[in-house]
């Protein structure tokens, strides 16, 4: 029985959110994603975000929200990871050198 407590705890956290009945297409999580991108959501916030999307009855708007969130995140990722300098690039050059060595030896 004691072992069930954490499970109940996580389930209640994951699904224990409030529904924003007045502005279902403009909920807290949807706004957060629009401003900061999909990855700004914690894993525990994902169910709330999905339910906010589900509660939004305007399906065309849901599609627009999803697409723009996806595009924004892809653009942010590309921007944040476009440069490749320092230790991480040094590591990559080592791996390339090792692979070239293994190809020819």
């Amino acid at each position: 029985m004691v072992k069930l407590f954490p499970l109940l705890f996580f389930v209640s956290i994951s699904f224990g959110f409030e529904k924003d009945q007045e502005a279902p297409c403009n909920g807290e999580k949807i706004q957060k994603v629009a401003k900061k991108g999909l990855r700004s959501l914690k894993i525990s916030e994902i169910p709330s975000y999905l339910v906010e999307l589900k509660n939004c009855k305007d399906k065309a708007k849901v599609k627009t929200i999803k697409n723009s969130a996806n595009e924004k995140q892809l653009e942010d990722d590309a921007e944040n990871n476009k440069s490749f300098v320092g230790r991480t690039s040094g590591c990559a050059y080592c791996i390339m050198a090792l692979i070239v060595y293994l190809v020819f030896v």
Binding site: K82, T88, C91
Partner: peptide, 11 residues
């Protein structure tokens, strides 16, 4: 695994 990466283009 230890992996480094970068994005040459979007996606």
């Amino acid at each position: 695994t230890f992996e480094t990466f970068y994005y040459p283009r979007k996606r």
